[in-house]
C-alpha cells in the first residue's frame, strides 16, 4: 500500500497532503487537519454525525476514502462561519430555537439542512423530516431542530435574500 498525494478544496482553500488509501476522510479532517467539528459517532452510516458536504452534497465522511475527495470541494462545519458574529441564518435559528443540547449531532444537522435549503428554499415539515432522517439526535426530540430549519427558511424568504446556503456553502 503506497501513500498518495491528494489536493482538494477544503472550506474554500486548497489543501494538499499525503494519505494512505485506507484512510477515511473523517480521520484526515480530524487528525491531520485538526478540524474536529465533524463528529465520529456510529462509524457504519446510520447516524449522520460525520456528515460533510462534498461538492455541495451531504455525504458521510466516515465511509468516504480520503483519496476519493482528490480534486473536489469539501465543506465542514468550520467552513460556515469564522465566529459568533457571522453565523449563518441556519446556525442562528438553531440557537434561537434551542435546537442544540449536547451539540454532538449539530454539525451534521446544520450541513444536511443547509443542503436541503439550497435545493428547496421553502420545504414543508414533511420534506424537512424526510431530508434529515439520516441524522440522529438523542437530546432534543427533533421538534426544535425542525422548527429551526423552518425558521431559517422563512427568514431567508422574508429577507428576499438568497437562501441561507447560497453564500456559505460555496467554499
Amino acid at each position: 500500500m503506497e501513500p498518495r498525494v491528494i489536493r482538494f478544496r477544503l472550506n474554500g482553500e486548497w489543501v494538499r497532503l499525503s494519505v494512505m488509501p485506507n484512510e477515511l476522510l473523517i480521520n484526515v479532517l480530524r487528525e491531520k487537519l485538526h478540524l474536529t467539528g465533524t463528529k465520529y459517532w456510529c462509524g457504519i452510516g446510520e447516524c449522520g454525525g460525520c456528515t460533510v458536504l462534498l461538492d455541495g452534497e451531504p455525504v458521510l465522511s466516515c465511509l468516504t476514502l480520503a483519496v476519493d475527495v482528490d480534486g473536489r470541494k469539501v465543506t465542514t462545519i468550520e467552513g460556515l462561519a469564522t465566529g459568533e458574529d457571522d453565523l449563518t441564518p441556519l446556525q442562528r435559528a438553531f440557537i434561537e430555537e434551542g435546537a442544540i443540547q449536547c451539540g454532538f449531532c449539530t454539525p451534521g444537522f446544520i450541513l444536511t439542512a443547509q443542503a436541503l435549503l439550497r435545493e428547496n428554499p421553502n420545504p414543508t415539515e414533511e420534506e424537512i423530516r424526510e431530508y434529515v432522517r439520516g441524522n440522529l439526535c438523542r437530546c432534543t426530540g427533533y421538534v426544535s431542530i425542525i422548527r429551526a430549519v423552518k425558521r431559517a427558511a422563512s427568514e431567508a424568504v422574508k429577507s428576499r435574500r438568497p437562501g441561507p446556503a447560497a453564500g456559505a456553502a460555496s467554499g
Binding site: M1, R4, P21, L24, I26, G43
Partner: peptide, 18 residues
Amino acid sequence: MNRFNTHIIPVAFEYHEP
C-alpha cells in the same frame, strides 16, 4: 455488531483507480 467496528479501516490493500 458495533463492538467490532473501528474508526479506521484495519486492512491494507493495493488501491487502483481505473
